[in-house]
């Protein structure tokens, strides 16, 4: 299962999406302002796979070294493949 999050860490929607992924042992994909979740120490203890949209990261001036290790950067094609290959996709929080 994949949960897509577009709201920033400072929002209840964003936090709700991350909590759902944690509770359901799902993977996470961050787009738009959700990419701020990818910055270091904002995803403590998340065990699933996490993905972040490259275009939205660059647009917001977030540097590669700012991103938590283990979070995979993908492009739009990668996002489409991710959604196509998952059995269930839920979003956008």
């Amino acid at each position: 299962m994949l949960v897509i999050v577009k709201n920033s860490p400072g929002t209840s929607d964003g936090k709700r999406g991350v909590k759902l992924a944690r509770d359901m042992a799902a993977d996470l994909c961050f787009v738009q302002n959700g990419v701020y979740f990818g910055q270091r120490e904002r995803l403590e203890g998340f065990c699933g796979s996490a993905y972040i949209l490259d275009e939205d990261v660059r647009l917001r001036g977030i540097r590669g070294e700012d991103i938590e290790k283990g979070i995979k950067t993908i492009d739009y094609d990668g996002l489409v493949d991710l959604m196509a290959n998952e059995d269930k996709v839920i979003g956008i929080f």
Binding site: G10, N33, Y36, R58, R60, G61, R63
Partner: peptide, 13 residues
């Protein structure tokens, strides 16, 4: 709040 992110350097559009 997160409005300060408007002033972050290096925004690549």
């Amino acid at each position: 709040d997160s409005g300060v992110l408007l002033a972050k350097k290096g925004q690549d559009d």
